[in-house]
Design a protein around this nucleic acid. Sequence first.
DNA 1: ATCCTCCCCTAC
DNA 2: TAAGGTAGGGGAGGAT
Length: 1121
Amino acid sequence: MAAKIAKLEKQYESSTSNINDNSQGIFRGIAIFVNGYTEPTGEELKRIMMVNGGTYHHYYSRSKTTHIIASNLPDTKVKNMNTERIVNPKWITDSLRAGHVLDYTKYLLYTNQSGSQPKLPFKPLSVDKNEKMRLDTSSSVSSDIAVDHKMQSSVEMHEASSNDLKLNITDTSNLTADNSGDKTNLDTTKNQTTGESPTKGHAMSTANPKFLSEFYNNSRLHHISTMGAIFKQYVNEIKRKGSSFPGRKRLMEWLKTSTKNTIKPEGSHHHLDKGFKLRSKRVIMHIDMDCFFVSVGLRKHPHLRGIPVAVTHAKGNAPTQAREGRDRQYELNYYKERAEKKLMKKMKPTNQAPLVNKETFDISDEESVEEPAKSTTPSSDKKFSSIPLIDETSSMSEIASCSYEARKAGVRNGMFLGPALKLCPSLQTIPYDFEGYKEVSYKLYDIVASFTHDIEAVSCDEMFVDLTELLNSCQASPEDFASLLRSEIQAATGCPCSAGMGPNMLIARMATRLAKPNGQHLAIPDDFADYMKDHKVSELPGVGWSLGKRLESEGVRTCKDMQAWSLGQLQTAFGSRTGQSLYNYCRGIDDRPVKSEHMRKSVSAEVNYGIRFTCVADAEKFISELAAEVANRLTSVNLKGKCITLKLKVRAKDAPVETAKFMGHGVCDNVAKSVSLSSATCSSDKIERETLSLLRQVKAPPQDFRGVGIQVSRLEGHQGSSGSSSSNKSVKSFFLAAKTSSKKSIFSQDTAEKKERLDNSISSSNTVSNVSNLRRSESYLDPQPGPSGLQRTDPKESKSSSGVNHTSGSKNQSTGKGTVDLDVLMALPENLRNQVISEYEQQGYTIPCAAKSPEKVSRTVGSDRESSLSLSSKMASPGDKDVTGTSEDRKDTYSPHRTSTNSESLESEDLITSFSQVDSSFLDAIPAELREELRQDFEHKKQAEASRSASSGTKNKDTFLVPVMQAPVKKGNKPKEKRGRPGKLDPRRTANKGLTKLTSLLQGPNNKLSSKIDDDFQPPIAMKKPKGKSVKTQNKKGSPKGSPKKVKPLQSALPVKDVQQLCHPVPFNPRAPCALPLGQLPSAHSQDLVMPYVLPQSAIPLSLNEMPSISSSLGQESLLT
DNA sequence: ATCCTCCCCTAC
DNA sequence: TAAGGTAGGGGAGGAT
Ligand SMILES: Nc1ccn([C@H]2C[C@H](O)[C@@H](COP(=O)(O)OP(=O)(O)OP(=O)(O)O)O2)c(=O)n1
Ligand SMILES: [Mg+2]
Ligand SMILES: [Mg+2]
């Protein structure tokens, strides 16, 4: 659909000529609110409206919204809406196609309201695509749609979203709570579906054609991920629109009032005083909604307030019925085993023992150890002991979010429902309300944005806000602002939130934990290091199950423990960047800036649930669907990619065929295969072809596939999701606008023109290349310049060949067009240059090859690397069964890496050097935003430096110490300037060559030593376990482990303690607090599984599934078992 | 010394 | 039954 829509837009645009001009937009005067799932997605409709002069409302406004767009019944909302205009989304697409607004009455969802039976003749869901496509005329469309009259308007919309469809007018809020609601929704939504599912009743991937859309419609993880991307983009849009802060007036008024009321004459002073202190530097706020999904859900189920509540798909009433061949206990133990093995690889031999032992068995002791410290968990008593939290019949439905009442009993987000019910028998469940979450999120962001645009979106329920400027401007104290802000959010959404404030993101975030439930906390320690002392390292950003375990094995549990380590020691043990971050974080130092704008680096779609293929054809069919999904996502954000990766989860050698979790992925090995294309693509067909080709390289039988994913990276194109070109700002635009130095813009033409041209050129070029490549690719391949051999032919299509040709071709083309100023480009440092190029490319411009680094084609097989490694290591252990499995595949498929051709790049480098000068002027000239972007890029490069520093390590460490690290564990980057920027020229730069001042500025000096340090450890690397950190008490668990094969009854309940320690065992549930990522074992819910053991806080989630990354590495090993 | 690929890990 | 997604930081190690 996205692709189709995009085409429609283009067509329209071309005909119209100026898209941006709202005055001409066909939807002028029309303001829509999208309710629920619609065929063109709400986001897509938003884009269409924005591009064509219309208005899009993120939440319904009775007075301003002119039309409500919905594919299925709005139910609740409908009742209350006075608007009679609930229209099928086809009205929008058909109007767009027609070039003018069609009569919406022909697209009304329903006529009368009372009946409220909408008329959805067709399938509401994605199904429509085909229909839409077919339907060209409005007439046809109309026919499809049930017309009728409008429903009546009625009441107002409730926030309630969708669920209660049919019900009448009554307000949903009153509806019964519980789960029942959920089903209703499903039914309604699905209604059309009506009996399908031939085969098994499950949602199998193969059998049920609707599986994909059904899965995504119900996947909370998919929704939060999607929403996260939406809000990051939303912040960008807000900033772009301009700066007006209506909230500041309210703040000023409020300050006056409150001051008077409160009476503290001093108060004001007080505020000021604090303000000064804070302002000296900066004041960062972290805002996070309290038990988000639950809070939103409770609006519809008010009678459940105050009691333990959890949001889940299952109700938890009926016991799960065991399937043939299922053995939860065994699966759990197997998972743990693998997780430990993986973790062990990363640890020093000396420290390994402990963990191992744990696994072996008893855990209790260990747990006790940990627990004690934390015992904090409030609650409970946790009974230690062992209550098996997971048994053969308990529900393995994950709890997305649970209320604070439930947390008192030890229940945690990500935990399985079954174990949670054992901890908290009175736990009530409520259904998901995805529409509600989005609505509340928009309100949250809108409110914050009314005060400042210095916002960094973290997720749909969370963000960082730099209050420095705001507080200075309004002379307000952080506390007062937080009070007003939180009250406004509560009033607008009906949901509580908490805010933490501090001198940097790290401390603000930690303050939020203290603030949590519905509170706020300002932390401005005089001595940061002292402030951090008693915090556990697991609370630091980037410290998850794996790193936490490694630190633990080194005796590092608290920040105080970590403060005893030198920078060099940390870098040697955990990597240069990670070591630097840890060094700073444990001292309360965090220079990361609150940043908004960010560029997407990859787009992917994966499904690791419900995958059960009976034959290759099933797998191929599903992969084709996924390819289309990914293509749509790329198209919707105007991006194309040059690297396609097929990611598979394959049942681990000894993992049971029947998974512990219904339709789950169980314990798996990860397999990845990738291909580099000569030219970027967003074509569904192309992605499908490449992907199917990669599939052929996989040796594992389709019957053992448990997960399938397709990722596209090395993106090009303009990022803006919104159709309007305006969106892009980026380096490119900058260049376009200003040309630096001698040549001003890189392109001779205007941006608009440029774009068009570029597109054309590109398309043509691509086409050409493709064409040539396509068919002959193979033959051509050889010709390639550098490494002619590279490619391996496989590329079916051309990749490789195209690459070759491509390069040459591209150069020619670009040159021919002469759109780009190579000189300018060349002048830039390599890094920068590449960025610029990439951006241009994204937009569609072609750039001479020379400038670029070579593309290469090649296809590489992925994942094996570990396996391969492991192989070597494993080799020893024979294990390997696994080895065979995974590794083999990889090997087989494996192709030589592509070399990156850089032959040309060399030239560019020379140029680059000269650039340095350019840079300076450049930077100055560049808008702040661009500068930011550039900086980021540079930062990356810096990383390398960081690594070096590590090596140099010891020395530098000391020097760096303090201020340096900003970035969280991750990479870092950041340091913007770290301390002294190396002046423009850094010595390093030289080394880097390409980088120029920018780089230096951004980066700190470092060089990377790179690998060295870790090497020591490396040999053994590999396993890891997941870890989860939990919020406070969490749980970790350990599981007993036994022999891989079957062990005792699940129950091995572990003491809570165990859990903690053991966390090790794998977290069954990756998402659980401690959990592992998904990878390996059964699934996640580590806690759940674990639960049996114990639980409370520390329990680790073991997920039955897989271990996080294990699959690959472990996979190999695991195979052993 | 760098660059680039291939993963793992973390987070919501 | 249950809906185990997804993007980006970062380390290791090979290629240049
Ligand atoms: N394992 C997880 C963790 C989170 N979420 C979803 C549901 C949460 O409501 C939302 C936000 O995550 P938070 O970490 O902010 O958790 P909550 O908002 O639920 O609780 P808290 O009050 O601790 O923020 O993301 C999820 O589906 N699965
Ligand atoms: Mg939250
Ligand atoms: Mg959150």
